[in-house]
Design a protein around this nucleic acid. Structure first.
Lengths: 346, 346
DNA sequence: CAATTTTTGAGGTACGTAAATCAGAATTTG
DNA sequence: CAAATTCTGATTTACGTACCTCAAAAATTG
């Protein structure tokens, strides 16, 4: 059977208390004794029974999720997933709290992080904003020994333990590749096509990265496709609608649209209203009620999606593992870019 | 704090033993007393602490995985993932065993299922073969109260508890949609193109379903694409190579190939060797070393993939939940169809 | 070498549940 | 109404670990 602390004590010829001191890094053990015990632990292949340990500790993992109070479908969905996790938390010894912060506001995020730090939770997950102050606040948390996971939006070059989100450069590249393939003409070819990109804001890292990936692929592989200057829709459906509508009026021959942010409701309306002679190829992000309907109707050709539920569950798993000092299964925690066509909608 | 059995006993005015009898469906409790206790349980919102319960029971979940002893990359990968789970199992109170069976052999599978039944494991996962005898054997397991999960290949109309695998019709539809889009010519159009399908065997349900989805989408949406009679490569690289090579010699203008089974190593060699004037669009299944390389080289255009690791972990989670009588998080257990282009390779 | 400090042992309690025993109470049966 | 049966309560042990106390042994210091 699985070895227990008692087995270790017996074989090492020490008392249970000493084994406990070694296992939990408590003082009061001579170096010789310590190494002897450690040897036995290794030779037996002992692994601490986490369930029993947590039971004994009466421990509950208290995690805090700091989320922007955005009202787009994706963020609302993210909130819901966290609430779902909270509902399930009773059975899992976790106690999860949500802290809302105003969106796109680095100072508010820093304030929230510092406030959370004072509460000494067992782990923190937050949607990062790419700013030096945020990086510093994250450093303070790590300093205090609190594991950190960034969610949806990463904070590179920071001491975060993990990023639970998609690779946005790869997402942009995928969009570019699909756009290129959907537009390419294997027989004739050579005609110049115009593609427009609708972003939320170029101040957001995710959007910058998606654009970067998209542009690279188009430039490198599809020389007859030209990307028009980026339009900013501030993730707002109304603004997106007028912006895209105007663009389609100016370029009735627009071959494609890549919407790399939110506010797709407006984009869809604009495309339908404009009624251009040849409907442009549209690739958008995040599967919501409206993008799903547009996919079915043929207004959108492909949707790249990140599964908020997976991101939340992954963040919790990672925080738990970090809190226990356990390794994470990397393959399990990689958040994949889902590609949805109208034929593989779940 | 979380209510415990002690709280229930105190509030219901009964002893701990009675609460235990109610909770674990043991006899020896009057109906009145039972309902009183159940009322208190409900009113307190009591949930049993699984960790403590399992600790007390000294329980280890013993699961059996029945896997075909195929030697293609996918099945080898599946084996590896199960072995990986076994390596991790010490920490998770699971004891997983692998039983190998000859591939595509319903009788051998039935024999294995019956042998496993005799060992009364806490759950069984197996790669199903679509045959009445297999269905009956699965019924015997369920009869014995053993949870069943089908892996990779489903067994519809059987009493299995769960299927951990992709929707193969949707996969075929996706392949059809990508093929149609990659081949379609938005400006000219109208020319007839020929596409060939390489399957392992039409006797396998997965392959039949993929073909069905593929054909449906092509017929309904891309009338100028014609599907040639299905080629069977028996999932064998050598056979696939000669089959495809011959086909490309006969049809040098072949526009596309959909490989819905295994043996892609041979397919790739055939396409490279044939050197047709215009390389056909190739869509294949399962990301392996060879399909990955072919994607990078541009020989394959898209790979549809099912993540064996996710399937195995999902199967284990579901078996555990069923063994504990807990609900499963459906969204978490849905196995997704990954679409890989050369731009989003992990 | 005595005084002090450090290390170790022994033992206990606790976490929340499972499962068992045994005795007493309530109920049913003849 | 006695006997048999069925319920119920009280109590105990166990699971594997954490953490506490107290005393004894060993090592270190002055």
């Amino acid at each position: 059977m699985k070895p227990t602390v008692h087995d270790i004590a017996k074989i090492a010829g020490v008392s249970l208390a000493t084994v406990d001191r070694v296992l939990n890094d408590r003082p009061g053990v001579r170096a010789v004794t310590r190494s002897k015990v450690e040897e036995v632990i290794a030779s037996l292949g002992y692994v601490r029974d986490l369930a029993a340990a947590n039971l004994a500790k009466g421990r509950t993992y208290s995690f805090t999720f700091i989320l922007p109070a955005n009202d787009n479908s994706f963020m609302i969905g993210l909130h819901e997933e966290v609430r779902g996790a909270i509902a399930r938390s009773s059975a899992e010894r976790t106690d999860i709290r949500i802290v809302d912060v105003p969106p796109f506001d680095p100072e508010a995020l820093v304030a929230a992080l510092d406030k959370v730090l004072a509460e000494k939770p067992a782990g923190v997950a937050f949607v990062a904003i790419d700013a030096p102050d945020v990086r510093a606040a994250a450093g303070r948390l790590r300093e205090a020994g609190i594991p950190i996971v960034t969610l949806v939006s990463d904070l590179p070059d920071s001491p975060r333990d993990h990023y639970a989100g998609i690779d946005n450069i790869a997402a942009g590249r995928t969009a570019g590749s699909l756009m290129g393939r959907f537009l390419s003409d294997p027989l004739t070819g050579g005609q110049v096509r115009y593609v427009t990109v609708l972003a939320g804001s170029m101040l957001v890292r995710d959007h910058r990265e998606r654009l970067e990936g998209f542009s690279t692929v188009i430039h490198d592989n599809y020389p007859d496709i030209r990307i028009l200057p980026v339009l900013e829709g501030r993730d707002d459906p109304a603004l997106a609608e007028t912006t895209i509508y105007d663009a389609l009026r100016r370029h009735p021959d627009m071959a494609g649209i890549y919407s790399l942010g939110a506010g797709n409701r407006g984009l869809i309306r604009a495309v339908q209203k404009a009624g251009t002679p040849r409907r442009p190829v549209v690739i958008a992000h995040e599967l919501t009620a409206s993008t799903r309907a547009a996919l079915m109707d043929g207004v959108i050709d492909a949707v790249l999606n990140q599964d908020a539920g997976h991101e939340v569950r992954s963040a919790i798993r990672v925080l738990k593992a970090k809190a226990d000092g356990l390794p994470v299964i990397a393959a399990q925690e990689r958040i994949r870019i889902d590609i949805f066509l109208k034929d593989n909608l779940p």
